[in-house]
Each structure stands twice: as structure tokens, then as C-alpha cells.
Nucleic acid binder design. Structure first.
Lengths: 223, 223
DNA sequence: TAGATTGTTAATCGATTAACAATC
DNA sequence: TAGATTGTTAATCGATTAACAATC
């Protein structure tokens, strides 16, 4: 058992892992063997001490004056996230967002493979999306059970989200990645992760507002 | 000047604002005039005290025993985020993700209106995406300046992100919403908000891992 | 009125940052 | 060796949670 399995890694650290991973892979591709926390921090606009703390969570040890072994860090992060193995998942909702996600190159890097796509629109059923034939939603339970799928990605409109989520859970799905702007009401045993585009835009809006406000003050329009 | 302009609202609170907003609008549509923090908390799986603290940030005051006026809260949040007025923006990268975002109904609700779309692929130029004609990227500066646009949404592949971001900044863009999985290197004066799909998936992966680990322990497979 | 709910003040919790000895 | 970098321990900062008086 790894040391870090006992103590939960802070959520902010987990959120930074993917950015580290991409950067580390870039460096690995360029043949770089070692990298320091200082360098990583600079390229991601973080503080070196924070990078060192984050790297400590992976269990990988660095060498003073040299830094960390790039490959070790990559493996450490991938192992922690379970991205070293591929996990099969289904996608529900063959709209624009679903298409974008399937086409999104990142999926492969994150160890997620969409093996079935569902849509309630009969006209879409039978056609392909990213090389995967779209199935009718009535077949969801059968396919999930047959393939032993645990994860569902939900990209249906908000008003359909709760219903398809319940269908997925009924079929045996354990984890849901929800892109619908709707809070899902499911048993506690189901892991739900929401990705809300509006949340991110709210952050931008707040930053812009603050920025404009501060500019105003500097220009003396205010007190 | 509003009281809350002086003190920054916590980022976690800002991140929760969009979910509150959607729920409040649902209630408003159903003709509900008042709502308590307790009810909001229940529906979003938060604690009542947290909702009260968040609502306090909007400057809206509630009535003991009754709760908050739904419309007031909606206006309070929208005003803070600047979502009560429409802001024009451009979108760079007419791929699947760009199409999904333009089609995404949420944009209108968030006061963001895409008025121009750019792509470097000449074959796409001239065709439409969500009712907007795609322009060649060479015209970006002219259009941004002519329309006085401040915000750019970037949905190009990772390796093109830095370049188009620099073009946008050069043209006068002040805020960037970056969907490309690449850390942008821009002047401090530019507000950059990234939306990283892998970040969200990393959270789900960590939760699943923890869940599996705890299940294992319960079943006694591990000390 | 009684009880639910608000808003405020204080306590707790957790993440970030600082300081510094250890080390290659 | 000297200096850059690590890892650890302590301090700081900020958000969440608890407690409780005020109130409709």
C-alpha cells in the first residue's frame, strides 16, 4: 500500500495534477530527464513551495540541487489518478457537447475510453459519432451490464439530466460526470462530478469586475 | 457604491453563484416569491449556514422565519457577476468544442453573446456556426477593434492557443476564457480564466479511487 | 405566542506560505 | 566548496462551521 493512500490528497492539489501532467509530458517528449519544482512553478505561474508540496503528495522524492525525475512524477500522478489504465465509459446525449468531448484528444490521455453513446433522438440512433455508433437509450441497461461499465458521462439538456442519471444508476453505473447544468439527486453511493461551464465563466466575470473596479480607482474616478 | 465592492467575495462563493442562480430562476418561474436558505441548501446539497453566508455576499437581506425574496437574490447575483447586461465576445476555433459552446443555451443566461467566430482553416471560413459566419483569423484585429470587443473565448488545440491568445491581446482583448489545455503566457494586465476538462475528470478519478479504497476496507480485504 | 429563520461573532478546519536545516 | 534545491516544521491566511441572540 502506498503511503498516500492513507491520507487524502487535498482537492486543490488534485485539481493541479492535470496541468502538471501535461507539462511533464511535454518535457519528457523533449527528452528531459530531470525537472525542478522551481521550473514547474515558473511555467505554471505557481509558487515553488506549492509545487514541492504537491509533488510530495505523489510520494516521489526529489534530489536537492537537481529536482525530480520527470518520468517518475508522470507515473506518480497517473497512478494516483488511475490514469495509467484505461477505463471504459458511456456517454449519454449525442449533441454538440458530446461530440466535442468524444473528439477531445484529452480523453485518451486521461485513461477514459467512451465505448457507447446514447441518445433519445431516434433519428440519431444508428449514425456515428467519433467512430462510435449511437444506440437508443432503451438499450442502455443491457449494454452497461454486458460490458460491465462503471462510468457515465452525461451531456443531455438540463431537464433530461435527472432521468438519464437515474437510468444509468439503475443499470449499475457507479460514477457520473455530469455536464448538464442541473444538480442531480442520486443515492449517496453514487459518485457524481459536475462540470459546470457557467461556474468557470462566473470566475472570469468576477475577475473582470474586480479589474475594472481597480482601474477606476487608479484613475481617480472614485474617492 | 455597494458595500460588497470593497471586500472581495470569496472565490468558492462565486463558484456557487451560478448554481444558486439556476435554482432561483426555476423557483421564480414557478411563481415562488420567497425562499429560505434552508430550502436552497437542501436542493443543492449544501449546509444552510453556508447558503446564508453566500447570500450575505450579494447584499440582499432576508427576513427571519420567511427567507429571501427570490427576485432580489437573482438580481443581486446577476448584478455582482455583471450578467444583467450582455457582453459581446469573440470565439476563436470553430471546432467541436466551439460549436458546443455557441449552441450552449447557458451563454445567453450568463450575459455573454458571441458576435464573431474565427478559424484558421480556410475551408471553414464563410460557412456558419450557430448562425454566425466564420471569419478568417487574419481579420481578427480589425473586427475586434471595430466592434470594441473585450472578451475572447479560445477553443483551439493546445499547440495553437498561445499564438491566438497573443493575437487577441494585440487586438485589444482584455479577458480570455481559455478552453485549450495549455497554460497561457500573457501580460499581467490580461485576465485569463481557464476551463480545463481534465481538471474536473481528475476530481472524479480521485473520488472513485477513494471510494473503491474505502469499500475494500469495509470488506476486510485490507487490514 | 412559539418556532423557524436570519445575521453576527467566534471557533474550527484546511490550504498556502514562510523559514530553515539537510543535501547533492 | 558554494549554491541551488529539497523536505520538514511552524506560521499565516482564508473558508467553513458552530453558537446564539435578534426577529418576524
Amino acid at each position: 500500500m502506498n503511503k498516500q493512500e492513507n491520507y487524502a490528497i487535498p482537492l486543490p492539489t488534485i485539481r493541479r495534477f492535470p496541468a502538471y501532467l501535461r507539462l511533464l509530458k511535454d518535457h519528457a517528449n523533449q527528452g528531459q530527464m530531470w525537472i525542478s519544482a522551481t521550473t514547474l512553478a515558473e511555467q505554471l505561474k505557481l509558487k515553488p513551495i506549492q509545487v514541492r508540496k504537491d509533488m510530495a503528495c505523489t510520494g516521489v522524492e526529489g534530489k536537492p540541487k537537481v529536482g525530480f525525475q520527470v518520468c517518475e512524477l508522470i507515473l506518480g500522478i497517473e497512478q494516483y489518478l488511475g490514469w495509467d489504465n484505461t477505463t471504459d465509459a458511456i456517454l449519454i446525449g449525442a449533441g454538440n457537447l458530446g461530440a466535442a468531448l468524444i473528439g477531445y484528444k484529452g480523453f485518451e490521455n486521461n485513461g477514459l475510453r467512451i465505448v457507447a453513446v446514447f441518445d433519445k433522438d431516434r433519428r440519431k440512433v444508428g449514425s456515428q459519432m467519433g467512430g462510435i455508433v449511437i444506440s437508443q437509450i432503451e438499450d442502455l441497461a443491457d449494454i452497461v451490464k454486458k460490458l460491465g461499465i462503471n462510468i457515465a458521462v452525461i451531456t443531455v439538456p438540463a431537464d433530461a439530466a435527472q432521468l438519464v442519471a437515474e437510468m444509468a444508476v439503475e443499470a449499475g453505473i457507479k460514477g457520473i460526470w455530469n455536464f448538464a447544468p442541473k444538480s442531480l439527486n442520486l443515492p449517496d453511493t453514487i459518485i457524481v462530478q459536475k462540470t459546470d461551464l457557467a461556474t468557470s465563466f462566473a470566475e472570469l466575470s468576477a475577475k473582470l469586475r474586480k479589474h475594472l473596479f481597480e482601474q477606476k480607482r487608479v484613475h481617480g474616478d472614485d474617492k
